[in-house]
Design a protein around this nucleic acid. Structure first.
Lengths: 347, 347
DNA sequence: CTGAAAGCGCTTACAG
DNA sequence: CTGAAAGCGCTTACAG
């Protein structure tokens, strides 16, 4: 806001003058128009070189009512899920020539609102948004009405009709729970995350379905909500481990929680994987470096990013008709953190 | 580049008309000028509300020759060192009201060049750059000459005079090697990274100094250059482990390498920390979740980011006189990956 | 193949 | 306290 800066400015005007042509002609060669003689083209190019001209894309965009930027709003960067998502989005957007403007909400509505308007003010050509849980449809719908393409990623918003890319969370929760059940577990905790999140609800539903299918009861004392961080995992496992009748396995809302939980188990003298089976969600790189290696449900964050970028591009190009939805199929990655249940409850 | 988009446009003109004032007056209330009567202020504000006006900061910046964006160029996001750096920078820049434009080079000169000009074309108010190793001074000096503030972070460029924030790499390498020497190790590998990097050279110098001080010889067969990634760590440890006379300890250029090395040791049936002492550099979150927990030299990436953002801000505000240099002092974080040497060479 | 003119949405002296 | 006018750096029909 309080920014300001003196700019030494070689303008297209200067280039044109130096080359002995009009501003319009200079602009034409800049943009590679075919109906410019090779001779003047060279003259202008030489002038740009000599003067050290730098194109003012901002001014050009203003005049031609275009945009070369895209806004990207995610929760935070500390969770590798989002770094990976960002990598995918960024890499793909790059190919299309967009420049990305980044914002992180830390799941605060106020920040998300601010970020959204900042991006509009900066004339972004479109927005990729991983929305704060419980976001109202209002804000986003307003943006869409303005004609700015939006694609939601990972987190849906009720009553908003726009592109969405996500993972089949129900299925993900289901295959995780099924895996645990197959290993003989009958008391399976559901650890971390918050029930306001659509992804939480869906993973929980999958978990429930697997229980129903196996004829297992669901004990709500075994679901504990915490932030989806390592800290949250520590808190969650602690609660469940000190309960009167602890579970023999835990399905964690995401890998961060799973890792926090396993760290805390070690801290308390338990052996994760043996004393309690753990499965995570996302398959972040950390999943593979922990001992035991984390069995988890991959949500392909990088791929999600790539899809999101492509959808946005299609919309910006006007190639989109109806709002699209892309749901990736999750995959169970079996590693080392799930042993068989020894008996009904932990020894 | 190929971007374009129709914008439904409520302009300040529209707002002014709707409120029955001139465009200039509307602009004044927008910017909170004191010499506007409360009555017209309210009228204009109401009009903005009703019309759903969105401020075009880009146009405003163009007219007033200002900028509200900052360019940030780093190597990649997969390395948590950079995520952490980004978090620090982003968080601090946010406070000043800047919007950040992100670019990743993957250590390619060509990409860095492209990113740099893209950012200039987008009229960034300043640039924070973690330069590709072996960057020429030309590019950056040109930008500085244009009057665009630059702050270099983590990686210096020879013959460029501008703000720099980094870590005392010499000292870092020294305390790492000293720690290992104190533990009785006499053959200490230096693993990963590339010798073109100023930070590599400096850490190596510290490592050398510690050896000199202890009267230990330096065996150049023990320094192996690889990419500073987990993969690089795997390759490096493999090379050194299969050598005729393997070292008993390794100082790794960064934590990614250290973790890769330890993973590979496990893979090969060795126990990291016991069969070979390992110390890393950076103290990324992963350092703490690996078993054994990694002993490492903290480089405070988040803090570096905060300092970089502040320096840039000072420059943009014109509050800067001479180029500043901030060198953070590294700190040895002792955890579990360094046992005492058993005897001269590994059993 | 090239130039003169209008205009993108805003701000900024300058008058009144 | 408010308006008319010029201009930021560019592009885009429209003539010639």
């Amino acid at each position: 806001m309080k920014t300001s800066k003196k700019r030494s400015h070689v303008t297209l005007q200067d280039v044109a003058a130096h080359a002995g042509v009009s501003r319009a002609t200079a602009s034409l060669v800049l943009r590679g128009s075919p109906n410019i003689s090779e001779a003047t083209r060279q003259k202008v190019l030489a002038a740009m070189q000599q003067l050290g001209y730098v194109y003012d894309r901002i001014a050009a965009n203003l005049r031609s009512n275009a945009s070369s930027t895209v806004g990207l709003i995610i929760m935070e960067l500390a969770n590798p899920f989002y770094s990976e998502l960002l990598v995918g989005i960024h890499q793909e957007l790059d190919k299309f020539g967009y420049t990305v403007i980044l914002g992180t909400t830390f799941d605060s509505h106020a920040i998300q609102e601010r970020l959204l308007s900042t991006m509009l003010e900066h004339r972004v050509g479109g927005i990729i948004l991983s929305a704060v849980p419980g976001s109202s449809s209002e804000g986003v719908n307003q943006i869409i009405k303005l004609g700015i393409p939006v694609v939601l990623v990972g987190r849906k918003i009720a009553n908003v009709s726009c592109d969405y890319v996500g993972i089949d969370n129900v299925r993900g929760g289901q295959i995780a729970a099924e895996h645990l059940i197959r290993k003989g577990h009958r008391r399976i905790a559901f650890l971390g995350g918050f029930s306001q999140l659509s992804s939480w609800q869906e993973r929980k539903r999958g978990y429930d379905q697997a229980h129903y299918a196996a004829g297992l009861p669901i004990d709500n004392n075994l679901v504990v909500e915490t932030p989806a961080t390592r800290q949250g995992g520590i808190a969650a496992i602690q609660k469940v481990l000190t309960a009167p009748e602890p579970p023999t396995a835990a399905f964690c809302y995401n890998d961060m929680i799973a890792i926090g939980a396993m760290m805390q188990m070690k801290e308390m003298g338990f052996v994760p994987g043996r004393d309690m089976a753990i499965v995570g969600f996302d398959d972040i790189p950390e999943a593979t470096i922990f001992s035991p290696k984390l069995t988890t449900v991959s949500s392909f964050p990088r791929l999600m990013g790539i899809h999101a970028a492509r959808l946005l591009h299609a919309q910006i190009e006007g190639a989109a008709d109806e709002p699209q939805t892309i749901i990736l199929q999750p995959e169970l990655i079996v590693r080392e953190s799930c042993s068989y249940a020894k008996n009904q409850t932990r020894a």
